[in-house]
Design a protein around this nucleic acid. Structure first.
Lengths: 250, 250
DNA sequence: AGGACAGACTAACGCAGGTTGGTGAGGATT
DNA sequence: AATCCTCACCAACCTGCGTTAGTCTGTCCT
């Protein structure tokens, strides 16, 4: 199973061979996108659903005066909203941050998939509900947390999301963002992002080398940022773990 | 048509008598909720879909240390997410701000509605896509705009949303929020909300009496806040207007 | 009538984070 | 090898907003 979407959905429910194959079959239309290249631009007519297979991308909105806010990250396995084709135009852009591979799934294929496989439908809805929950948490992040907490929270979220698709290395993951992009994500200036990163390193919570983020002390980072993973709704994998524990003790 | 959901959906597409009746039929289970009363609390098991018929409500998240962030408003006609029942637990709360009437639609009814009426399905998906777009815009709001712009933007959004369900009076609408709640929405302190409201009044952009917000100069308020209504995706009603214009001139 | 309380509003002060204007290292281009 | 970029990083200064600690008004109790 090298399709990250399948790995992601396995956090919600078990999928049959047939269902997995059906999804795989829909991910044949793959495009490579360079770093800092737009996948879809604000104002474009909405096309098919996009699935990030490899790389790193983001949703962002640009204000008329040039200020830019990144409103979501895409890690491999993330879909842009399943029903975008209902809307006429994109109200935001999607851009690659690292070089990426992106599959386009046609509306027809989405509808056919969901019509044929009820389990899959539920699993796909789950993934979009999680995406919405993340958006809400980001509002909390910029609205209530200070710079240090914000950044810590973002790093916790990233690690959990990479874990969910098996793309972490223990407590490390790739972080292909520049400090300016981090600033545009967190609603801070790039100078202050720099200061804040230094503070997180000074407190021995993280290290950064090159494009790799390593979390030194996840527990402490979670406490600092008041991180609560419930909003990621990784219930099934949690249950699996509990089941394994029960089997072990019972 | 006194069901505000129907008025709202009419911004996206025309609905038949039968479709309208089918929705009405699903909104029989109505509950009255007092001001500042929770409808659903964080951690609750997810039940049916909620529809606000009258009043004003919000989604909010509370951090462990007590900080609270309001992440969405509900005006009449707004649904809480159509597929919540897929998730096990609520990761946030929904609370009434003004005394409200709330209909609960069972998962069965949602699924049946969507199975029977394709047009309705699309219209309902549209409404949830708009909800997500609003959440993204709120991230931009707290991330990029300063206090004055933030509040101006919020007021513009509220007016457009009230208009979409015909509950505005020209440039006025109800604003049942306290300054503390506004602060929790905008990621500001209540003191600064007070200062900012005064500044908006000083610039003759708005007036407030009692629970009524009146926008004195919508154009200026939109320019100040870099407001762009596209994210509300009120396409169909815009098209209707264009059609009327064409009919008039052609 | 009088007390209690919620909510709008104010003043004074402090600080988190923004702004400006840098340096310096590394990588790509010519 | 010289030039150009991009990006991390730094110092000094400034300001928007938060914090604290109020007052005042209207409304609901009793």
């Amino acid at each position: 199973m090298n399709n990250p979407l399948l790995r992601k959905l396995s956090n919600f429910t078990a999928l049959s061979e047939e269902e997995s194959a059906a999804i795989d079959e829909c991910c044949k239309d793959v495009r490579e996108v360079g770093a800092r290249e737009d996948v879809i631009a604000q104002g474009d007519r909405t096309g098919g659903v996009k699935l990030l297979l490899e790389g790193f991308a983001c949703r962002y909105k640009t204000l008329e005066d040039g200020r830019r806010q990144i409103v979501a990250y895409f890690v491999p396995g993330d879909l842009c909203d399943l029903r975008v084709f209902i809307l006429k135009r994109m109200d935001h852009s999607i851009g690659a941050i690292a070089p990426s591979k992106i599959a386009t799934i046609s509306p027809d294929n989405v509808l056919r998939l969901m019509h044929t496989y009820p389990t899959l439908t539920t699993a796909l809805w789950w993934s979009t509900l999680v995406e919405e929950a993340i958006a809400r948490e980001w509002i909390v992040n910029v609205g209530q947390r200070n710079a240090l907490e914000r950044m810590a929270h973002l790093f916790c979220e990233l690690l959990y999301r990479y874990r969910a698709v098996g793309l972490n290395q223990d407590l490390s993951c790739t972080l292909p963002l520049t400090q300016v992009e981090l600033a545009e994500t967190l609603g801070l200036s790039s100078v202050h992002v720099n200061r804040t990163l230094q503070e997180l390193r000074r407190q021995q919570l993280i290290t950064l080398n090159g494009r790799t983020l390593t979390i030194q002390n996840l527990r402490a980072l979670e406490e600092l940022s008041l991180f609560n993973a419930e909003y990621l709704h990784l219930d099934y994998s949690a249950e699996k773990h509990r089941d394994v524990e029960r089997e072990g003790t019972g």
